[in-house]
Computed example of a mutant assay.
Amino acid sequence: MNPHVIDKLRIWPWLCLALAFTAIVAVVAPYQLGVLAWSLSKLSLGAYLGYWVDRSIFHYCRPHAFLEHSSSVPPAVFAASMIRRALIIAAAILALGLGV
């Protein structure tokens, strides 16, 4: 199997769980499906925008670039770049989630 396909499918249990909970909401409270869709769209948009904000601000120090030069870069720099990206994405998700 293609490694790119395997990479995209590694989180399938979470997708199945999310679909199961959506089905439960549809059965128990179908009038809440619109609210659920609105919340999921804001969450997804926040994650997408946060990722691209990080890439555009820190275009010169993307996390994977440190792995290519792992012999000359200390591991703490790689960890810091990953934490930076996670914080920016979390901030964007929170901003959209709490803003409207």
Rank of each mutant, 00 (worst) to 15 (best):
D7A: 14
L40S: 14
R10Q: 09
P74E: 10
G99C: 05
V77W: 00
P75Y: 00
V53R: 05
F21S: 05
I6T: 07
A29I: 00
L36T: 02
G34A: 00
W52Y: 14
G97N: 02
M1Y: 08
R85C: 12
V25M: 01
A80L: 08
W52G: 03
L45W: 07
I93P: 12
M82A: 09
R84A: 11
S72L: 07
L49M: 06
Y31H: 08
P13K: 06
L9N: 09
Y48N: 08
L49Y: 06
T22I: 11
L19F: 02
A37N: 06
S41T: 09
M1H: 15
I11L: 03
H59T: 05
A80V: 13
A79E: 11
A47R: 00
G34H: 00
I6Q: 15
S39G: 09
A37W: 12
A80K: 07
V28S: 12
A23P: 00
N2K: 02
L9F: 12
A26N: 12
Q32C: 05
H64N: 12
L49A: 05
V5W: 14
H59M: 08
C16D: 01
G99P: 01
I89E: 00
A79Y: 15
V28A: 15
A26R: 01
A79M: 11
R85N: 11
G97S: 10
S71G: 01
A80I: 09
L19Y: 04
M1W: 12
L43I: 01
S56I: 09
V5S: 15
F58Q: 00
G50R: 08
L98A: 09
H69N: 14
A80S: 09
W38C: 02
C61P: 03
V27F: 15
F58P: 11
C61S: 11
L43R: 01
R62P: 04
S41N: 02
T22S: 02
F58W: 15
P30H: 08
A47H: 11
R62E: 13
S39A: 12
L87M: 07
I57G: 14
K8W: 08
S41L: 13
P75S: 00
R10T: 10
S81L: 04
F66Q: 02
A95H: 04
F21I: 15
Y60C: 06
D7C: 10
L94V: 05
S44K: 04
L17M: 12
A95S: 13
F58H: 07
L17E: 07
F78D: 03
I11R: 09
H69W: 04
L40C: 14
H64L: 11
V27D: 07
I89F: 08
A23S: 05
I24T: 10
G34R: 03
C16S: 10
V28N: 13
A37Y: 13
V53A: 08
A92P: 11
S81Q: 14
S71K: 08
L40V: 06
A95C: 08
G99K: 01
S71C: 10
V77S: 01
